[in-house]
């Protein structure tokens, strides 16, 4: 089992943002975390990636406890991340962004003399090739189209050969066609590398089209869990989402 989350709690002031959340995630699985605004998705996510420390509960990632561990250490354990609003290095080229992650992975961050641009070129190009960005490798990241930035982020997230990917709204801000392509790409990569993925998402087409399993949060609590068909039929979920959107998927 890649990830075992058990009894997670987090409160802000008097508000219980996450209330006793537990779930499991296995290699090769695409798990979606959904819920209406304010349901606690982001809080939950930020506890997994280390930005927030849970009040209680445990997050087992293979043999390691992640609760309260700094983001950079979580990454070292083999957890990759993409952000809702892409976070890349604007003053670097596409390839350099990936090289940067590779330099960190190979613990070369304090090397003062080697030429960074010549390090791990082949590995970086292979990753960019995998996400379909090899032809733009030499462009500055600051001029890329948004969909391409998302791909770069995916390549960066794959640089440390992660066993778990945390993707916060991976398709936010993208055109519908791009969304499908990106998720298909992600699914392929996950399958071939046996990576576990946990993602949050607003777009129900993406969720129901690509997730193997879905967790539904409402008011900090898990109200449903199961494959898309099960979740779609869940009354409580229908109630939360007012029934409207789910029917289309």
């Amino acid at each position: 089992m890649t990830l075992v989350v058990d009894g997670l709690f987090k409160a802000f002031g008097g508000v219980q943002a996450v209330n006793n959340v537990s779930f499991r995630l296995d290699a090769g699985e695409l798990l979606a975390l959904i819920g209406p605004n304010g349901a606690g998705k982001t809080t939950c996510f930020n506890m997994l990636n280390g930005q927030l420390r849970p009040d209680a509960g445990s997050i087992r990632f293979f043999d390691n406890e992640l609760a309260g561990v700094a983001p950079r250490k979580i990454w070292r354990l083999g957890v990759g991340r993409t952000f809702q609003i892409t976070a890349t290095f604007g003053s670097m080229t596409v390839r350099e962004n990936v090289q940067m992650a590779l330099m960190s992975y190979h613990r070369r961050l304090f090397a003062l003399l080697p030429r960074a641009a010549a390090l791990y070129v082949d590995e970086a190009m292979a990753l960019l090739d995998r996400v379909g960005m090899a032809d733009q490798a030499d462009r500055p990241c600051s001029v890329l189209a948004y969909g391409d930035l998302k791909r770069v982020e995916l390549a960066v997230a794959l640089a440390n050969e992660p066993r778990l990917l945390l993707m916060d709204e991976p398709t936010a801000g993208m055109a519908p066609k791009e969304r499908v392509e990106l998720m298909a790409l992600t699914a392929d990569i996950v399958a071939e590398r046996k990576i576990a993925v946990l993602f949050t998402e607003h777009d129900m087409d993406v969720v129901f089209g690509h997730a193997g399993r879905i967790l539904v949060l409402n008011r900090g609590q898990l109200i449903a869990e199961g494959n898309p068909a099960e979740v779609r039929e869940n009354d409580q979920v229908r109630e939360v989402y007012l029934g409207a959107e789910l029917g289309h998927a």
């Binding site: 976070a87 290095f89 090397a111 960074a116």
Partner: peptide, 24 residues
């Protein structure tokens, strides 16, 4: 032009991403 210099620029460009790729 070295990895150190790149990492320094990385911290400036995006602290969030730097943390997320293991940079202290």
């Amino acid at each position: 032009f070295s990895p150190f210099g790149y990492a320094m620029r990385a911290c400036r460009d995006s602290e969030l991403r730097s943390h997320a790729i293991g940079i202290n």
